[in-house]
């Protein structure tokens, strides 16, 4: 029995056998590197507390992965960088004024429940950082909806999307004075929002870098952002603002493209991106939350096995 089991593990696929120098570690550190500008800008914008949030989030993520894998005598993968990404991403999608226990509990939840309980890297259904944020929103509704104003300590404001859903477009224009000022504030990132989501420009730079070195494909981000633009236009909203505000760029480039929780086929990725964008706009327009990126991606994560199944390429000769 033993030998047969072992033989079954050694399945040899047909040639050609391609080897590349790409390892999980290299990919993970490329992602961290591409996130650094946006994260660094968040620290510049919101102060030292933001840096503490990032460090505690990353620290707890790595510690949780290492600790639990030691306790349960699993293979320790804490150094492959994926826990660092989860921690960094989580810190970037929480309000910059959140108390430190928020990212610490969130990172623990992301790694222990969303990642390791489902079987570790490669087996998680949901993007760990996003699922942890959903849990944090449910658990700390007040801390997760108080937004610091850029460059001003201790004063809170509303995010552009929050203003839009509370008091309408005229209030947003009042706040930014002119439309051009609004677009540029959102593009460069000088607005209230989650720690690392405000600057569309820096996220775009990081995202394009990842596409250029072929770590992610362009399909999911392009479809995601494109369908947010189109659907917002159909709802009669300012489509450019819809794309630049909230977590669209961060979600489209860095979360919807998560290898594990997104489809593998070309058509699947297009469907996935379109679905994320459409759900984002539907949640923004029709649900009670001002922002929909998080739930849109999580909902599409659930649909990935189905999408993969229906878009599986046919083998030659298969009917």
């Amino acid at each position: 029995m033993q030998s047969q089991n072992e033989l079954q593990r050694l399945v040899c696929s047909s040639s050609p056998h391609v080897r590349s120098g790409i390892t999980i570690k290299k990919i993970m550190f490329a992602v961290v590197f591409s996130l650094l500008p946006a994260a660094g800008y968040g620290v510049y914008l919101f102060g030292m507390h933001a840096l503490l949030l990032i460090l505690s989030s990353i620290g707890m993520a790595v510690l949780t992965e290492f600790g639990l894998q030691k306790i349960f005598r699993m293979k320790v993968t804490a150094s492959d960088g994926s826990a660092i990404i989860t921690g960094l991403l989580l810190a970037m999608i929480i309000p910059p004024s959140a108390p430190l226990y928020v990212p610490i509990i969130g990172s623990f939840f992301a790694i222990a429940i969303v990642k390791l309980a489902f079987g570790g890297l490669g087996s998680n259904i949901f993007n760990p950082a996003l699922a942890a944020r959903a849990f944090l929103v449910a658990s700390f509704p007040v801390a997760m909806t108080i937004w610091a104003r850029p460059h001003v300590d201790g004063i809170t404001g509303a995010t552009p999307l929050g203003m839009l859903s509370e008091s309408g477009m005229s209030a947003v224009l009042d706040h930014f004075k002119t439309k051009i000022a609004m677009y540029s504030a959102m593009f460069f990132g000088n607005t209230s929002g989650s720690l690392g989501e405000t600057s569309a420009l820096l996220l775009l730079v990081g995202g394009l870098f990842l596409i250029a070195i072929r770590v992610i494909s362009w399909r999911i981000p392009a479809m995601f952002i494109g369908s947010v633009y189109l659907c917002s236009f159909l709802f009669g909203k300012d489509p450019l603002m819809a794309v630049l505000s909230g977590g669209v760029f961060l979600g489209a480039f860095f979360m919807a493209t998560d290898y594990v929780s997104s489809p593998t086929t070309t058509i699947g990725q297009i469907i996935f991106g379109l679905g994320c964008g459409m759900l984002t706009v539907l949640i923004r327009e029709l649900a009670s939350y001002p922002e929909g990126v998080m739930f849109a991606i999580l909902l599409m994560n659930c649909a990935v096995p189905l999408i993969d199944r229906f878009t599986k390429p046919k083998t030659l000769g298969q009917k």
Binding site: P141, V142, T145, E166, S167, S288
Partner: peptide, 14 residues
């Protein structure tokens, strides 16, 4: 928030 006189409950506007 709607220009009136009542303080809303934090994070429970609805």
């Amino acid at each position: 928030k709607d220009g009136g006189n009542i303080d809303a409950i934090t994070a429970a506007t609805i």
